[in-house]
Simulated assay, not measured.
Amino acid sequence: MAKHRIYTMSFASVYPHYITKAEKKGRSKEEVDEIIRWLTGYTQEELESHIEKKTNFEDFFAEAPNMNPNRRMITGVICGVRVEEIEEPLMQEIRYMDKLIDELAKGKAMEKILREQ
């Protein structure tokens, strides 16, 4: 079975869209980066390195140093599909990130986005 097209897309090609989506709603690049670091465990330097290297999504998530265990608390619909019901692990990770960026753009508080108890 062929890989989904997004798996081979570079993270760097989608990242500016995350920033644009957030900034259109009065949020910041720093908040987008904080969300991505929270989800993946990357440092800011590691995140920037993956952007510069144009790492694809498959490798971006495979190399993530510490996927946040609280990401399982992310629920809801993205692209018409419930994120908690996505069976393919890599697609679920990608959709978790999409969902977090959506929540940011919708004005949700960072504490809630980052699932702080």
Rank of each mutant, 00 (worst) to 15 (best):
Q117F: 09
M73L: 13
R71N: 13
V32H: 05
D59V: 02
I78G: 07
R27S: 02
I78M: 12
F61W: 01
I51C: 01
Q44E: 14
N68M: 04
A2Y: 10
E58A: 13
I6C: 03
S28Y: 03
N70A: 10
G80N: 07
Y7E: 12
V83H: 02
F11K: 00
G41M: 14
K106S: 12
I101F: 00
R5D: 14
A109S: 13
R95I: 11
E111S: 12
N68D: 10
G41V: 15
E31S: 03
R82D: 14
L90P: 00
K29S: 02
P16C: 11
Q117T: 10
D98A: 09
G76C: 11
F11G: 00
E30P: 05
I86F: 06
P69T: 04
S49E: 13
V81T: 15
R95F: 15
V32W: 03
L114A: 11
K108S: 08
V77C: 15
A2Q: 12
R72F: 09
M97Y: 01
G107E: 12
E103I: 06
T55I: 01
N56M: 14
S13V: 14
M9S: 04
E84D: 15
T55E: 03
S10N: 03
A22E: 03
E116W: 07
I6S: 04
V14F: 03
I36H: 05
D102R: 07
T40Q: 04
A2I: 13
Q117G: 12
T8K: 13
T8C: 06
H50K: 13
R71Y: 08
Q44T: 15
A105Y: 08
F57C: 02
I51N: 00
H50D: 10
R95G: 02
S28W: 02
E88S: 10
G41E: 15
K99Y: 13
R27F: 01
I51M: 01
R72G: 10
K24H: 05
P65H: 09
I78F: 11
Q92R: 15
E31L: 09
Y7H: 09
K99S: 12
T55F: 01
E31T: 09
P65S: 10
G76H: 07
E45G: 08
F57M: 06
M73A: 10
V83F: 05
G41I: 14
S13E: 10
N66L: 15
M9P: 01
V32F: 09
D98V: 03
I86S: 04
